[in-house]
Structures are given as structure tokens and as C-alpha cells.
């Protein structure tokens, strides 16, 4: 067993995934990332768990490994941007970690420093990320204490560069400062992220639902959002909700 932090239980030291194609980490992730982080471990396939399993699929384990923090040098202009962010006093503490993967750089920003960081990213002539392309949320229910992620895709038209900022918040305190005062385009995108993930953007001028009806309960893009099954007219049978059907992961 491997827990969410990647520590292995001594009972099965050295256990590898049983799926031959994923035996080594190198095969699993073809990326520049030197280190992988286990964020979750899945067991079984086709929804088979526990006793009574004669197929063997219930014994499958698959660690979910995301690219981990990168070390310097990041390569190309990535270092220049990282250096420039660090020149502003206290902002070096804003960066939790940096991930360089698939030619993209991701800065994990501590949420209480987000507003200062984006202000600096937009205004500094060396950085000049004047355009916020996209704001989107991702829900990782297994990352205890950092379940909710928000990814900001910033574009510098001046220097023709793109970076990603990622900010995390725990599920029981889903607050992230709003960047609308810096990037007015984030207005609707933050509303969508609130609507879909329940992340509260503090300081947003009017954080109302945007795609779902105003009185809708729940936040549909979250992984724990209950999905509907479909009743079938055959002896009370139902088609299970999509997240409870047989699956390969």
C-alpha cells in the first residue's frame, strides 16, 4: 500500500504496478520532470474490489504520479522569469514550487501572495504578462489539505511567453483572492470556477453563478458531485452513474 504522500507500507515494500506497461516511472511519464509525486493510488479495475474476485483485476494497483518540483536550471527564458519574480522583496516566499513539464512552466503560488504576484507579473517590464488567457479549477479529492487547484494561464504578448500559475486551497477553506482588479477578464472565468468548483474568490465584485441556474445546489465539476444514474424499465434495474460504472483506472 502506498498512501497519498508516497510513503510505502512495509508490508509490500517494492511492490510495482502490475500493469506491465507501467512498470517503471520512466515509462509512465515521458517528460522533463526529474521527480514524480504520487498523489493518489487506485486499486482494481472494472469496479472489482474485495473477495469473490476471480479475475485478478481486483489486485491491480496504480499510483497516480504527477510531475514533481523541478530544480534549476529550468532552461530558456524560464530562469529569467523565475529570477525576476524573486527580485521583488518577499515574493520569493510566494512561490511554493516550480514545475517544468512538457515545455511549460508552472509556478505554484501561495494563495495569500497571489494578488501581489500577479500585480508584479503584469506590471514589471521584464515580465509583462498583460493578458490572462484562462482561469480554471481542478479538483483533487485525494490531496488532503490541497484539494482545490486553480490554474491561471498568463500570456505576455510583449515577450510572447506563456506561464501557468497554480494556487491551491483546502476544501474546508475554499478561499482564493480574486485577480479581477488586475485582470478584469478573470471576472466571468472566476464566476465559472466558483460555479463549477465552489471556490470563493475573495474580492470579486459579484461572485454569482454563471453557467448553472442561480438556485442550483452543489458544484458540478467537483469529483464528489453526485451524478445521476438512469432507471431502466426492467425489474427495477438502473444504469449506474458514470463514476460508478466499470472503468479501467
Amino acid at each position: 500500500m502506498v498512501d497519498a504522500k508516497g510513503n510505502k507500507d512495509e508490508r509490500d515494500q517494492g511492490t510495482k504496478t502490475q500493469d506491465g506497461s507501467h512498470e517503471t516511472q520512466a515509462e509512465l511519464v515521458k517528460s522533463d520532470a526529474v521527480e514524480l509525486e504520487i498523489v493518489e493510488v487506485r486499486e482494481g479495475a472494472f469496479g472489482i474490489h474485495g473477495t469473490g474476485d476471480t479475475s485478478g483485476f481486483g489486485g491491480l494497483t496504480r499510483p497516480v504520479m504527477m510531475p514533481g518540483a523541478s530544480q534549476r536550471p529550468y532552461g530558456g527564458w524560464f530562469d529569467e522569469v523565475a529570477d525576476q519574480i524573486a527580485t521583488i522583496g518577499e515574493l520569493d516566499q510566494a512561490i511554493e514550487k516550480v514545475i517544468v513539464d512538457r515545455g511549460e512552466i508552472t509556478f505554484f503560488i501561495r494563495r495569500h501572495k497571489l494578488l501581489e504576484t500577479v500585480t508584479h507579473l503584469r506590471n514589471d517590464p521584464v515580465l509583462r504578462f498583460e493578458f490572462c488567457s484562462s482561469v480554471s479549477g481542478v479538483h483533487f479529492p485525494h490531496e488532503t489539505g490541497r484539494e482545490l487547484h486553480v490554474a491561471y494561464h498568463l500570456l505576455s504578448m510583449t515577450h510572447n511567453r506563456r506561464i501557468r500559475l497554480e494556487v491551491v486551497a483546502p476544501d474546508d477553506d475554499p478561499h482564493i483572492p480574486s485577480v479581477v482588479s488586475i485582470y478584469p477578464t478573470a471576472d466571468w472565468q472566476e464566476r465559472e470556477t466558483w460555479d463549477m468548483f465552489g471556490i470563493i474568490f475573495d474580492g470579486h465584485p459579484a461572485l454569482a453563478r454563471i453557467l448553472m441556474p442561480d438556485d442550483w445546489p452543489g458544484h458540478p465539476q467537483r469529483k464528489d458531485y453526485p451524478l445521476g444514474g438512469i432507471p431502466v424499465e426492467y425489474k427495477g434495474g438502473t444504469i449506474a452513474p458514470p463514476d460508478q460504472r466499470r472503468s479501467y483506472s
Binding site: R102, E104, T106
Partner: peptide, 25 residues
Amino acid sequence: PAGQAYASVEAPRGEIGCHVVSDGG
């Protein structure tokens, strides 16, 4: 393979971007 990527193309209406996250599945 697990990770995330953002890709954008010039659509008739402007930049359409896609942010996909994979868990290796």
C-alpha cells in the same frame, strides 16, 4: 502520461485554449 498542458489556437473568434489534466488514465 500524467501531467497537464495548455494549448491554444487562433479560432475565428479569437484564442481558444484547452487546459487538460491527465492522471495517467
